[in-house]
Amino acid sequence: MKTKTTTYFSADHHFGHEGVIRMCGRPYSDAREMDEALVRAWNARVRPVDTIWFLGDFAMGSSPERCRELFARLNGTKHLVRGNHDGKRVLELPWASQHDLVQITVGGVRLVLCHYAMRSWNQVWRGSLHLYGHTHNTLPPTTQSCDVGVDAWDFQPVTLAEIRERLATVDEEPEEMRRAREQGEENGDAA
């Protein structure tokens, strides 16, 4: 019998980065404690057979050796969407793929993945979702976009079902759609 796999999303671990603890109010005393907690949280959810899309900023302040050691301990087939802190030490890790922006379909849902939040993205009018990192839970989600970084999701990777459950509670529509509706109302068009 074939094992059912799950696809996960995450971002912004900043392995080795002492400053992110203070900057984001993370509950760790130092980077070593944070790194170990993030590895445990990842592996508590992601199995070796699962897939994870990591939306940037894997490490900051970690040596190439430490990056390799942490990467090897993390479960799953790991894909990278590059972030602003993903230098050579991260890019040389054995990711299954690397992208600046990628469009995928998971469970019949179109996804646009980028480290950065976008105001508009491909297929937004047809229900595609945009997942991003970088903002460390400082940008509110819209009905079709959200931050998948660890600061927004209790320091663990998240599934599409969990993302969709959160988005179902949001009223703010994507800016491109909201502005088109507002312009239509200004011109007397029914939205």
Rank of each mutant, 00 (worst) to 15 (best):
V20H: 08
Y132T: 02
M34S: 03
L129V: 09
D30Q: 04
V46Q: 02
T5K: 14
D189K: 14
V81T: 04
G188V: 11
D154Y: 11
G127W: 15
T142S: 15
A37N: 15
A41K: 13
Q156T: 06
V170R: 05
G184F: 05
G107L: 08
W125D: 13
N75A: 07
T169R: 15
M177C: 13
S29P: 00
G188Y: 07
Q144C: 02
M118T: 03
K2I: 06
E165Y: 01
H99D: 02
T77A: 13
I104M: 09
T138C: 05
H85L: 05
Y28Q: 00
L167P: 01
E36A: 13
V109R: 15
E69R: 11
W125V: 09
A11M: 09
V81E: 02
F54C: 02
D189Q: 14
A37R: 13
M60L: 15
V106A: 11
L129M: 06
Q183G: 04
P94E: 06
T138R: 15
E182C: 05
R166E: 04
V49K: 08
L70M: 05
T138G: 06
H115G: 10
F71A: 03
G56Q: 09
A41W: 05
P140E: 11
D50C: 04
V90A: 05
G188N: 06
R110W: 10
Y28L: 01
A37L: 10
R66W: 00
D171S: 12
V148T: 05
E173G: 01
T143E: 02
Q144A: 10
T138I: 04
E173R: 12
V109Y: 07
A72N: 15
Q183C: 10
T135I: 13
N122L: 09
R181I: 09
T105A: 10
Q123V: 05
M34T: 00
C24F: 05
R68P: 00
D154K: 13
H13N: 12
W125L: 10
V109Q: 15
Q144V: 01
C114R: 07
H13W: 14
R73I: 10
E172D: 13
R166S: 08
